[in-house]
Design a protein around this nucleic acid. Sequence first.
DNA 1: AGTATTAAAGACTCTTTTATCCTAAATTAA
DNA 2: TTAATTTAGGATAAAAGAGTCTTTAATACT
Lengths: 159, 159
Amino acid sequence: MALLSKSCVYGIRAAILMAIKGNEEFISIKDIAKDLNLSAHFLTKILQQLTQEGLLLSHRGPKGGVKFSREPKLIKLIEIVAAIDGLELFEECALGLHGCGTATPCPLHEKWSEHKLVLRRLFETESLEKLADNVQEAGLRLRTLSQLDILEFNKNKRL
Amino acid sequence: MALLSKSCVYGIRAAILMAIKGNEEFISIKDIAKDLNLSAHFLTKILQQLTQEGLLLSHRGPKGGVKFSREPKLIKLIEIVAAIDGLELFEECALGLHGCGTATPCPLHEKWSEHKLVLRRLFETESLEKLADNVQEAGLRLRTLSQLDILEFNKNKRL
DNA sequence: AGTATTAAAGACTCTTTTATCCTAAATTAA
DNA sequence: TTAATTTAGGATAAAAGAGTCTTTAATACT
Ligand code: SF4
Ligand code: SF4
């Protein structure tokens, strides 16, 4: 199990890429998909969710694409996670018990609920812009790697 | 996305139940499944993984069942997670990038790798016995709830 | 020896996630 | 107005996860 679904990871990567490109004009999803080495159709579906949540604005036709509805600086990672995976991760019990109540807490309750909060803060704190800066500084590596890429990487041990 | 797969959660619940029952004799999987309100066949599959990892001993035939290969006191939660879900959660990047290297870290690297460690320590620290005690003190609630149970719960708002 | 009990193993089904493909609707530009 | 471009949306397919069912093998008890 990964922490986030693949869709969510792709969504985050796309958002970081968009933040890097700035938010001046609409960016075509096809271009983003090409940069990330993803299927454009698939990415379209994912970004649709962000559009429906009001995080992105979209525009059809030539010169169309998507852009953030507000400054990337103000958009936190958790907003993207919430739109795609939901907030379950930060709100549910690690043991998956329903009918939670602090009156009769299940095992792990204390430690996990404390931890959930820390995790949540992490995603609430990180803004897209900060991540974008970080990517640029360190040398971008957002691209989904194909099998060939991985072979290449293993040969070169740097990418 | 949940933190742990359902199989893993079931495995942990079963293990806690077993720890509560003590480790004197083999416990029948059918009985555990009944207590947890799970399919016995399904639980068998899950516990098989723990047996194959050497965490449990199994024995067929009448009076057969499973028991821990060592004291529940010594068994940490992470061992069960490792056997069922693997350690990916504690070892992989939150953004799912391959070819990780601290030389050219991807965004989130610092925060997430720090956090991964905390999460790992949490699972490394909690022993089955401690959880079992906790369950008993607070009033056991390991049972998987059926839809009927949930209705019932919502009526009573306590379980 | 024979029967009942129990885990192991594998075939199979159902659901969810991931991914692809095709068509429709909106929009721009010529 | 026509053609090209681009997101939206639905149908479908493939893969993984969750769960069921049947058969087999081991074991204990009579
Ligand atoms: S008691 Fe705590 S850990 Fe258990 S379900 Fe409730 S919040 Fe989650
Ligand atoms: S750079 Fe850090 S976060 Fe990125 S893949 Fe490597 S370990 Fe994971």
